[in-house]
Design a protein around this nucleic acid. Structure first.
Lengths: 223, 223
DNA sequence: CCGTCTCATTTTATCGATAATTTAAACGTC
DNA sequence: GACGTTTAAATTATCGATAAAATGAGACGG
């Protein structure tokens, strides 16, 4: 397997936020396994920044919940027990269901248009196998959708839990079939936004979360 | 009014977390009004720590959500618009209701005992007018109660939103009458934990939030 | 061979100093 | 007197160096 030291990013200028984002991506694409140690010096070498920024990036990752830090011991990529996964998804479902219920239906045309555009881009990335794009448009699609509920704090919390479940969702990125199913779900959501039934929409949003959760739990139980 | 510069804490040794806690207290007791500027040098002088810790304390406060930072401009105590207050409380109610619904009833004796002890301490602080103690035992009471739901992530989010609503709850600390009402609510909650009806308990937990929210919204609308 | 006690190495935590940025005031011009 | 420009003060951001802590390897006694 590729180790952290093999990766170099010479050209780009990094600040702590862009480092955090890069590492976040490494995690979702499985380049950084849960439990991996994250030393300051490694980041320092990889991103060519001062200790200050490497450090800040790590505290960033900590507040984003995708890394855990122990005093005087440094950071490791967070690894989730099945119990934690269940807890996180229970809260995720709670938050996303409520957000869906709060969206005023039928949704305005601009929102439909915006989501449709994202949906099409998402589809293109799925077919071309460009995983980074899939991930980005997927998250943006959901965030845009849920923002329609009108409660920015709720959306922020949803975003937090999307990040917490990053390692869980990583698995599902590998199979094109599951990506297509996910894409189809999105289409249905847009359809529902044109209607008037919040409950169906909410149920759809909750169901949408199940596949990757189940796949992950099945995966860890057999290992 | 007392300004930040008037406060000195010479004796005590501070780290960034204890500074954050001290400032958190200042906010809930109204010593630090929303919108107040928080410069590093001020903290430096007040707590006699190096710039490093003052700085870390501020980023702590930022992630706790009780301070906002603008790049190259520093931090100010977060001030909430009525809209934001409404949003925060909507999510708070959602989270706390669900936590209450998830608590297995009837609750085990140890939990009842623990909560009863906290409840009595809370009562003593209310009567003696020791506000710091009231605040601490109050928060501990709710956290202990909600922890019984078995979902630590949900509890963490509840904690976050308790902090976000700090400025709102500050108002309610001033009147002993409202503290007594709150205390009575707690007693009822303990009673409900002995029973089997999650829905009544949940409703109680939601109702418990209303007074301070309403008082705050009424307060800002007349100013 | 096992434990445990140095000691060197690795890694994180802290510090003081300097650089960069913003803010506000002083100044001059029209 | 209003407006734009320059300068000085205040404040935050960044840096490199040093201190402190944890880790692991090897030495030593049992």
């Amino acid at each position: 397997m590729q180790t952290l030291d093999d990766i170099r990013e010479d050209e780009i200028e990094h600040d702590d936020l862009s480092i955090a984002r890069a590492l976040e991506e490494d995690i979702i694409f499985g380049r950084l396994a849960p439990g991996t140690r994250l030393t300051e010096d490694t980041l320092l070498a990889r991103f060519h920044v001062t200790r200050h920024f490497a450090r800040q990036a790590i505290v960033q990752l900590e507040t984003m919940g995708i890394v855990v830090r122990e005093r005087n011991k440094g950071a490791t990529v967070r690894s989730l027990t099945p119990r934690q996964v269940q807890e996180i998804y229970d809260v995720r479902e709670l938050l996303q269901r409520q957000a869906a219920l709060w969206i005023p239906l039928p949704a305005p045309d601009e929102l439909i248009a915006e989501l449709t555009a994202l949906h099409e881009e998402h589809g293109r990335h799925v077919e071309s196998g460009y995983l980074r794009g899939v991930h980005e448009t997927n998250d943006k699609f959901h965030l845009t959708l849920f923002s329609a509920c009108g409660n920015s704090h709720l959306v922020q919390s949803i975003e937090l839990y999307m990040r917490l479940s990053l390692p869980v969702r990583a698995n599902s990125m590998s199979s094109k079939e599951s990506l297509r199913i996910s894409h189809e779900h999105h289409r249905l959501m847009i359809e529902m936004l044109k209607g008037r039934d919040n409950w169906v929409l909410a149920q759809l949003c909750v169901d949408h979360l199940q596949p990757s959760k189940k796949r992950y739990l099945a995966y860890v139980s057999e290992n």
